[in-house]
Design a protein around this nucleic acid. Structure first.
Lengths: 236, 236
DNA sequence: TGGAAATTCCCCTAAAATAGCGAGGGTTAA
DNA sequence: TTAACCCTCGCTATTTTAGGGGAATTTCCA
C-alpha cells in the first residue's frame, strides 16, 4: 500500500472537522514533513483550516495580518501549479520580516504550496513544509509532488462535503439574455452600449439587470455581476 | 513505464499548439478511449481547444450554440471533482436533443470531465469519453481517474506556458484600502455603507474606487470589481 | 533623505441605478 | 389549456454613483 493510498483510505472515513485535523497530522507523519496545512479561504462564506502549526504562531500570524504580506498566499492567488517556496518572491520588506519570524516559529525552510480553486469562488491552499537541505528537499519534492496534488484535491473535496453536506446549492438559472447582460456589464460596457450590442432598447436591458439581480438575490448591479461570476454563471 | 509517465514525458516536449493536438490524440490512443478533449474557455481572453472530435461535429456544436445547453459544461462550472457523465442532469429538453445528436456523431456514451480552474479567471475542461458498457467504464474509471486528474492539470499548465510564455502578467498591486473597498463593493454594499464600515468619508472612499479602477485598467466600477475578482485580488 | 505612494478630505454636474406603474406576444412544461 | 417564464417596449420619479476637478497629510521604499 503506497503512502498515497494509505492517506486516501483514511480520508474517506473522516467526516468531522476533528477527524480532518487528525488527518492532516497523519499526513505530516506519513510523508515525514515538518508541517502540513490546509486552509480554505471561502467555504460557504466562512474560512476553514486544518494544520499542524502551533496555536501561538497562528495567533501571531493573524494579529500581524501576515496574510497580506505572506508571499505564499500572494503567489497562490496568481499561480496554478504547485509552488516551491524557493521560487517565490521574498523581496519586499514585509515578506522578509515575515520570513524571519516564520523560521523562528519552527516552520520549515522548504515548502510546497498548492492552490485549489473550486466553484462559487472557493479558494484553498494546501501546503507541506519541511526543515531540511536543498538536496533532500529536491528528492522529496520530486517523489511526492504528484501525491500532494492529488491529496490537495481530495482533501478539499472532503472538506467541502463536510462543510456543505447538501452539495452544491441549486441556484436559479439565468436566462440567456440575463447572462449576456451580466457578461457585458462585467467587461465594463454601459447600459447603452449593451442595449445596442444586443439590439434591444435600453429599457429592456434594464429589465434583464433587474431580473438577474432578483434571481441572484443581489443587492445591486455590482453585487449581481460579482455573484454571477463567483457562481460560474458567466466567464470572461 | 506507466501510461501516465508515457504521456507526461511527451508532454514536456510539446511546445506548439500542433504538438498539443498530437498529444491529445496520443492520449486517446494510450488510454484506449474514443475521444479526448481539452478546452480552455479563457486564456488571455481567447479560447483554446485540442480535441479528437470531428470538425463537422465541432461546427455543428458551435452553430447550434450547444455550449449553452451542454450539461457537461454547465456541470463543470458548478463542480470541483471529476464528473462522470452518468451523474449529470440530462433532464432538460435542450440537453436531451443535444444528447441525441452527440451519440449520433460518434461520441462515446460514457465520459469523465474534469474542470480546471486557474488564476485570472482561467477555466478549462478536460474530458475523455468512450463507447462501452457501464461495467467496462467502471473499471476504466477506477483505474484511470487519478491519472486523468493529473493529466488535466499538467496539460493545462503546458498550454498556459505555450499561450502565455511570459508567465503570469505582473499586474499592479492594489493597496489594502483599495482591496477592502472592492471587496465590500462586490458583496453589494453601497459607498455610504462602506465608508461607514471603514470609518472614512464617502469622498475618500471614492478616491479608492477611482484609483483601483485606474490600476486595473477598468472602464467603470462594475468592471473593476469583476476584474479584481478574476485576478484573485479579492475573494468572497 | 527625497520622491513616490497611500491615505484622507472637499465641490460639482451628468449619468446611471433603483423603484414603481404599465402592456403584449412567444415558448414551454405541467 | 393554463400557468410560468422569456423577450420586448413604454412612462415617471428619486436616489446614488461616476467621473471631472483640486489638495493636504503620512508612510514607505530606494
Amino acid at each position: 500500500m503506497t503512502k498515497l493510498e494509505e492517506f486516501l483510505s483514511s480520508l474517506e472515513t473522516s467526516d468531522t472537522p476533528d477527524q480532518v485535523q487528525k488527518l492532516v497530522e497523519s499526513l505530516r507523519d506519513i510523508y515525514g514533513v515538518t508541517n502540513a496545512i490546509y486552509h480554505a479561504v471561502n467555504l460557504d462564506g466562512a474560512p476553514y483550516a486544518a494544520l499542524t502549526y502551533s496555536p501561538e504562531w497562528m495567533d501571531h500570524y493573524q494579529a500581524q495580518k501576515y496574510v497580506q504580506v505572506d508571499p505564499v498566499v500572494r503567489g497562490a492567488l496568481q499561480h496554478f501549479h504547485p509552488m516551491d517556496w524557493k521560487r517565490l518572491d521574498w523581496s519586499s520588506k514585509g515578506s522578509r520580516s515575515f520570513l524571519g519570524e516564520a523560521t523562528g516559529a519552527g516552520i520549515g525552510n522548504q515548502g510546497l504550496s498548492i492552490p485549489i480553486r473550486g466553484p462559487n469562488g472557493q479558494f484553498a491552499l494546501f501546503t507541506v513544509n519541511h526543515e531540511c537541505s536543498d538536496r533532500e528537499w529536491e528528492v522529496f519534492s520530486k517523489e511526492a509532488k504528484r501525491d500532494m496534488m492529488l491529496i490537495s484535491h481530495f482533501l478539499h473535496q472532503q472538506v467541502v462535503k463536510i462543510v456543505m453536506p447538501d452539495g452544491p446549492r441549486q441556484y436559479e438559472r439565468l436566462s440567456p439574455r440575463e447572462t449576456d447582460t451580466l457578461k457585458y456589464l462585467a467587461v465594463g460596457l454601459t447600459r447603452g452600449q449593451i442595449a445596442e450590442k444586443l439590439q434591444i432598447s435600453e429599457h429592456t436591458l434594464r429589465v434583464y439587470i433587474d431580473s438577474a439581480r432578483f434571481k441572484l438575490g443581489a443587492l445591486n448591479t455590482v453585487h449581481a455581476v460579482a455573484t454571477a461570476y463567483s457562481r460560474g454563471l458567466i466567464t470572461f
